[in-house]
Simulated scan of single mutants.
Amino acid sequence: MNYNNSGARRGKPKRILDPSANLAPTASSTPQSPYMYNQQMPMNNIPQQQEYGFNMPDPSTQAYGFNPSTIPQQMPMPMPMQQPSMQYNQNEPPRIDTFVPTQFPTQLLAEPIVTNMALKYGDALVDTGKQHLEKYVPVTAIKYYFAVDTDYVFLKLALLFFPFTHTDWSVKYEQDVPLQPRYEKNAPDMYIPTMAFLTYVVMAGLLLGTQERFSPEQLGIVASSALAWSVLELVIHTVTLYTMNLDTSLRTLDLLAYCGYKYVGINAALLLSLLLGRLGYYIVIGYFSISLAFFLIRSLKLRVIPEGHSTYTAIGNKRRLYFILFVAALQSVFMWWLSYHLVE
């Protein structure tokens, strides 16, 4: 293809619009389409309202050729339709603006038949649980040993310290069942031994504090060692009864109660040691060892060697007497062993 530009006019190309000359092209009588490329329209001839139903941007106020007001606003999100109610009234049409939960479970539980069935089922579960618990823990027997009152506690403590004037050591029965400790002061209990054991731990902490030897670890050692020695003592007495082949009316909780009374004398000895030192401690330990031994011999005699029982022979009674003396003597040994290291 041959290109010949000899006929073309040389020089600068003709400028269509010179801004420095403040000239504008003459508007055509026929309106031109605003969508034609690279077309300029006079600013004073821009129609304000088009027939298409939207406003054209004003070039004098918009630098970039668009008007934010012409941007369609975001439509609000429609509200979710609520679930209609499950309850309907025959007199009014169903409403779908609110949701009322059904009251069927509440109405069902309010029925007398259902309530009675639930109560019976709960009682059956409780009875079954008690039966399973009784196989491992004698709850009823433990409740018997804690059936005490204030009068019994004072009378029992006085009997432990001054048993020499007491004459009637028998335990009364009602329909082959021994009376509760609150009605019979000769009956063994677990309340006084338990409270005496806890008081012993507190007294040990007090004495260790006055001697500047207190620490939580030391207090835990005292409590755990005393508990271990009590369990060991109970095992020794049980094995002794089995080895000697002694048939007695003593129970395991009876032995635990009788052996727990020694903590009463230990607390009294530790308390007096704060005032009189070692002298007061040994005075109380010696006296309470004698009184506790007398108390145990008279109390255990009726439980180990019942009067008027035809099956017990003389040889068997001698073994039972040895067992009673062994229990009484062992209490003074444990009293000294559990308390001597707490006194300076």
Rank of each mutant, 00 (worst) to 15 (best):
M1F: 08
R10G: 04
L17W: 04
L23D: 05
A27C: 06
Q39P: 02
Q49F: 07
E51L: 13
E51N: 12
G53W: 03
P57H: 12
S60Q: 06
Y64I: 07
T70H: 00
P78N: 11
S85L: 05
N89M: 07
P94V: 08
P105I: 12
L119D: 00
G122H: 04
V126G: 04
V126K: 10
V126P: 02
H132K: 09
L133Q: 10
V148I: 13
D149N: 13
Y152H: 10
F154C: 09
K156A: 05
H166T: 04
Q180M: 13
R182E: 08
P188G: 09
D189C: 10
Y200N: 15
G205Q: 14
S215Q: 06
S215W: 02
S224N: 07
S230F: 07
S230K: 11
H237T: 09
L241P: 04
Y242W: 13
L246Y: 08
D247G: 13
T252A: 14
D254T: 06
Y263A: 14
V264H: 07
A268P: 03
L274G: 09
L279C: 03
Y281P: 05
S289E: 06
I290T: 08
I290A: 15
A293G: 10
I297P: 05
R298K: 15
K301V: 01
T311Y: 11
N317M: 03
R320F: 01
L321G: 07
I324G: 05
I324D: 03
L325H: 01
L325W: 02
L325Y: 04
F326S: 06
V327I: 12
V327T: 09
H341K: 14
E344P: 13
